[in-house]
Design a protein around this nucleic acid. Structure first.
Lengths: 333, 333
DNA sequence: CCTTCGCATCGAAGCGCTTCGACGACACCG
DNA sequence: CGGTGTCGTCGAAGCGCTTCGATGCGAAGG
């Protein structure tokens, strides 16, 4: 069962190889009748263009690299949602996705780019001082980053507007009448790593609090139940008047509710809680959490569109911030 | 900045193109001095073989497809861990990984296989009656499945031995002296989908219970806190003597602990809980859960090895079951 | 009626690599 | 000392596709 080549299709349809190619690519006008004949031959023979040959001749692999962080502590659901939307959107542009892990480092990127395995790169979870950023600048292949390095000059970056997300939580709680509000953030290590999004949320939270004439109180928060419990307990002891809590830590969100329950605080009667997390986590919690959505799907989608535009030679904005959206559920009042 | 080709390397080293190729592939003997000279040229010029050309000439893309399920309700951490280990192991064999989603269906598989984009396929989360299985049988490209379809004849399947995992939980609890033991499983929809692993766990649990002269009680379990709470409440009402609970539902595991706490049962003093879940989930819970590990990493690793063996023309076993391992933590006594 | 033009199609030249057969050079054997 | 290998290297033929320039043809124009 030899595989079907373009030559087989050409012979079957009684045309030249180049004609088949033009029918398939649409790069030259072909008469309707010929086109039909060719397409039918393609169908009956079950022809699939050889990817390698196509890449070699056209200098386009129609594959993009998706570089995901794999270190533990990543926000898995968000990551998966993101990956899924990247693959789905890429397919809409007739591209496939090569999966890479961040631990291949700059060398891995150089390898796939230089070998023409991929036409462009999508990097998730870029850090403030990311060793891969200088490389991306010198690569001829276009790239799109999720997250912001210290200096985004000359790059294309996409992210959720985390500062706005933090502010949004404040707005919601203050509008409900709460005055004493605290933020429980990501584990300390995340801030130390300098991924950016955690700081930006805190900053947005703090700025908005101050703008409203209130005193911000923001703290990192670990992820195990016991540590969350201790953090909540400490918070309530130090600031007994706290009536609003913003949680920017997906794994901890459920534990915060459990801790409050154990500490005799009812949600939302005594304390209102807003989380910044995916919808499914918010809905699964008891009570269901009012939350600001991390639109991972939109981010992936948008990132692919930007990359495709760059591959197309178009100019794209250096920075794209996606607007967060707050959904009211049962945990705030 | 034209990209460096093998011809450039050959000229720089003063040898024929074919000699460079043989140095790089090791398929023919090359004198040590020539080899050195070539390798040095490769390094100084920064040569990376063009993937398309290589694939075209050698009929090997050095890429494997990884097909992941993307429907909601999947066990994300396990999935990511799996994907990570697949990528890492594939790289050890000098292969890259093309990421696909299950919703591309059989056509997607046919496309990447027929276009020679990939040399082999790795499918995760195969269902009992999976529409892709017949296709895999007729494809010339080798494949490895994670999970078992109804008829694994002629295929290569890898999975955790879930029946054994269920039995292992029973053994642990019974050895501790517990007699009345219940299993809280996956959401009902998972059983209906027929993914297999959930049923197999239940069967292993039930068989071992009966073998021990005990009465099995196994129930599906949804994932939201409220539903878990109701399920636990109902269980305690119907079977007040229950002193051991096996949870085979990662999202629910934490909620089960919370529900028991709210219902006035201490863990492990009043009730012992064993979970079947990844270690990080077990460790993050309060109290830390005694658990049977889902060794997602090993599964991915093993799957890649099997696929590489098949690509190599070797014979491999039709079925590979990975043995589960129980880790005792704080939730059983 | 002959030229001019545009459309539809063809043929051939690569793209960068692997691989096969060939060919010197040299060592070894009888 | 001429055959017979062996080793290391070379040249050339593709792999299946895209793309460029050329070409045949009918319609439009003078």
């Amino acid at each position: 069962m030899r595989t079907v080549t373009i030559a087989d299709v050409a012979k079957h349809a009684g045309v030249a190889v180049s004609t088949v190619s033009y029918v398939l690519s649409g790069k030259r006008a072909i008469s309707a009748t010929t086109r039909q004949r060719v397409l039918e031959s393609v169908r009956t023979l079950g022809y699939h263009p050889n990817a390698g040959a196509r890449a070699l001749a056209s200098k386009r692999a129609n594959v993009i690299a998706l570089v995901l962080p794999l270190r533990a502590g990543m926000n898995l659901p968000v990551l998966m949602q993101f990956a899924t939307s990247v693959v789905t959107t890429a397919r809409q542009y007739d591209h496939d996705v090569l999966l890479m892990t961040a631990d291949e480092g700059p060398d891995g990127l150089r390898r796939v780019a230089a070998s023409a395995l991929v036409d462009g790169l999508l990097l998730m979870d870029v850090e403030i001082h990311d060793p891969r950023v200088p490389l991306l600048r010198e690569l001829t292949e276009p790239s799109v980053l999720i997250g912001f390095p210290a200096d985004p000059e000359g790059l294309t970056c996409v992210d959720l507007d985390f500062a706005r997300a933090g502010a949004l939580c404040v707005d919601h709680l203050v509008d409900l009448g709460h005055r004493e509000i605290a933020l429980l953030g990501a584990p300390r290590v995340v801030y130390e790593r300098g991924t950016g999004f955690a700081e930006r949320t805190m900053a947005g939270f703090a700025d908005e609090m101050r703008r409203r004439g209130l005193v911000p109180d923001a703290r990192p928060c670990e992820e195990s139940f016991d540590e969350v419990y201790e953090a909540v307990k400490l918070l309530l002891e130090e600031r007994p008047g706290v009536s609003g809590i913003v949680v920017h830590n997906e794994s901890a969100a459920g534990h915060v509710l459990g801790a409050l329950r154990m500490l005799g605080r009812r949600v939302p009667e005594d304390v209102s809680v807003v989380a910044i997390c995916p919808d499914d986590v918010a809905e699964r919690a008891g009570p269901a959490l009012t939350s600001v959505l991390i639109p991972a799907g939109d981010v992936g989608d948008q990132a692919v569109r930007l990359l495709m535009a760059k591959l197309d030679g178009q100019q794209v904005p250096q920075s794209t911030l996606l607007q967060p959206r707050l959904t009211v559920r049962e945990s705030t009042r």
